[in-house]
Amino acid sequence: MLNPGPSPRKKLTSPLPGPESAGVFSARAGTGPGGWKRLLWRGALALLIGGCLLTTACGKPADADSGPGLSGKLVLTGSSTIAPLAAEMGRRFEEVHPRVRIDVQTGGSSRGIADARSGTADIGMASRALKDGEGDLLAFPIAGDGVALIVHADNPVVSLTDEEVVAIYTGRIETWKGVGGLERPITVVHKADGRATQEVFLDYFDLQPSQVQPDVVIGDNQQGIKTVQGNPDAIAYVSIGTADFERRRGTPIKLLAAGEIAATTENVARGLFPIARPLNLVTRDQPTGLAAAFLDFARSDAVDDLIEAQLFVPIER
């Protein structure tokens, strides 16, 4: 069997790599030996110019002074929940005051608190109420948000008592049959430790973080909606506005009532819905100038439509 016959009939030569090396000898000689030095010089020059530009640009203090007619730059950092709303408010504010720039950055509520405290940001954003250790800061609520329990649209369960919710989240009830549904295991979706909606949820149901027995832990609202949408046996809690919006555009989820009170943005607006949180803008000192003007604007009727467009609830002023 040593016959070295033509075994695979396809090109026998194809194991050969392409003639890579050919290119090596076609290297252009035109640049000449001085090419490197020139290149280095150019690089150094570019660096120098760039450096100069930068230092001059950075040297300018980022002034947020308000002259006659507002001007300057305002930096907001913090909660990713509030960021889209604040950015839209900023855009509208900029249209009224063309010499103003409102830069909205995210990074989470804790960053908003920390940046407002350190002065890195003019205004912080926090999608929760201030905590005990944060009394040094001033909070300006701009909108409200409710937290609703959601299940898959195919789930026959339409409402849960508070006790049932607690039993499900602590693992005492493990199948939907225990609350009048099908004989299927419940997938308990919980938010990550420290998230604002999680704190509101735990607070309302009087649960300790260590008591909850989750099957899935999530971060953003959208992740919760996608999880429930793809799993007929899941239960999760997310922002009411988001959930209601998704339900209306045909996502197969449904919102459970909290006791007697239906989970709607109207009920949150009227202060009836019990599981809710404020969306706060936070400052270190009593705001003046541009910051004060923007805070007033963000709490005026002029932004109600923006709040509703971002699926939050305007608060009573």
Binding site: S79, S80, G107, G108, S109, S110, R111, I113, R128, K131, G133, A192, D193, G194, R195, A196, D215, V216, V217, G219
Partner: peptide, 22 residues
């Protein structure tokens, strides 16, 4: 089984973590 990785741990909780937690 669901699991949590070290990186997910940071990304999930960093947004709301206060001093010590952070």
């Amino acid at each position: 089984d669901p699991i949590r990785t070290l990186t997910a741990n940071i990304a999930l909780e960093m947004a709301y973590a206060t001093q010590f937690h952070r």
